[in-house]
Design a protein around this nucleic acid. Structure first.
Lengths: 226, 226
DNA sequence: TAGCGCTTTAACCCTGCTTTAACCGCACCT
DNA sequence: AGGTGCGGTTAAAGCAGGGTTAAAGCGCTA
């Protein structure tokens, strides 16, 4: 799956990075200027962006800033030869998640990319929020340490909600997670959501709320802790 | 709020870091050995862990690894004097989210801590002006820290106004933001604007004023009276 | 092949958002 | 003074979307 975007105008370095990423079975799209990068990022479907700062047309700092202004929080790792503290702070201030100074070891870039990519959809096999926990590999949910039987689809929904919490998950990404691109045309999602709510209703400190315009999110009632 | 944990056995460095974090209004708990750190982390209520590698009893790499094995995905930033590539890769392999080589600039540590802390708690995309704040991702507005229910359309208007403040926003760009190019032919915008004004009227230091020819803008009153 | 559980479909309700339309009042112009 | 345009207000109609429920389809296993 190609959910990386590399933005780098130096063809040699770009080629290098692409080759190295491929060895790690990471595949990426490539943009060689800032405007093109922003264009590609509009789709919002990249997991991580590797962003050079020196770019023609629109520099990396501006690309990152505009991205954030648009409400896009795709993780960004900035690449640059500038190693002064101020440069780094500027990068972070514009919304970067990581900052790597050239020349860098390819292995380190890959490690950092993987950290950013995995944290969202990750390697952790136990997710929890309040009294609800989910063992991702066993596909088994627990409420108050007691196992609860949930259907596969409902488990997918719960997993998405737990990963995002306390952020909401859009209807669209839920449907994407369940059916990919072959979505049913009925209100199936509503029904599954209803099943999840019913399962969660056996206790009262966690619930699913719908946020008009944003989707659904887990709500942890006060008086509890994760 | 103290949701940082600093794990560092050198008392001088620890004191330094704690002092510097306090200047940035970040407050942290402190552990001086690995076992104590793991103990504290059991509670699972830390937002970020700053973890030295060289520690008595249980080194930082092991602390991080055990944390992950327990299914705890609290962001970890590792500190160490070891700057070889292999050391870094080991750190990431054990589950670190970031890796900072000593000596480092305090400002960079703070920047990286903030990135890790904010990304998780979803505070990144907040706009605010006076007593009004808007969590963009959760589509949730607050007045004086109290949540206020606003309709999706009104939220869009508020977002535009907050982004532009103190500049005005033209009618046209508001309509663009709400409906794109398929705009209703009635005075719908006026009505939504009215709803927003009514919502803002519960307090009196922020209001929406119309700027002839320019559109609307948020107005922040200064002072209580006179 | 019968039964079971999961998923999908369809029909329905209801809340509250969005739109519509009509009205008010003010400023400006003729 | 009266007309016109613009912004603001209000109430009501229409509708979309979320939530619920029951039943039909489907695949699996016993």
């Amino acid at each position: 799956m190609t959910n990386l975007l590399l933005v780098e105008d130096d063809p040699d370095l770009a080629g290098n990075i692409i080759d190295y990423l491929e060895l790690e079975e990471l595949y990426c799209d490539h943009a060689s200027n800032g405007m093109a990068a922003l264009q590609l990022l509009q789709s919002g479907c990249y997991g991580v962006v590797i962003l050079d700062i020196n770019l023609p047309q629109l520099d990396g700092l501006s690309v990152c800033q505009r991205l954030r202004e648009q409400g896009n929080d795709t993780p960004v790792i900035m690449l640059t030869a500038r190693d002064q503290l101020d440069d780094k702070l500027t990068g972070f201030a514009r919304g970067a998640d990581d900052y790597l100074v050239k020349p860098f070891a390819m292995a380190e870039l890959v490690a950092r990319v993987q950290v950013l990519a995995l944290r969202r959809s990750g390697q952790i096999k136990q997710l929890s929020s309040g009294p609800v926990t989910l063992n991702v590999t066993q596909r088994q949910a627990f409420i108050n340490e007691k196992p609860v039987k949930l259907s596969p689809t409902v488990l997918i929904i719960l997993e998405q909600l737990l990963r995002a919490t306390p952020q909401p998950v859009s209807r669209d990404s839920l449907e994407q997670a369940i059916w990919g691109d072959e979505r049913p045309d009925s209100n199936s999602l509503k029904v599954h959501m209803h099943h999840l709510r019913k399962a969660l209703s056996v206790q009262d400190s966690v619930s699913v709320v719908s946020q008009p315009g944003a989707g659904f999110r887990l709500l942890l009632q006060v008086g509890e802790h994760g």
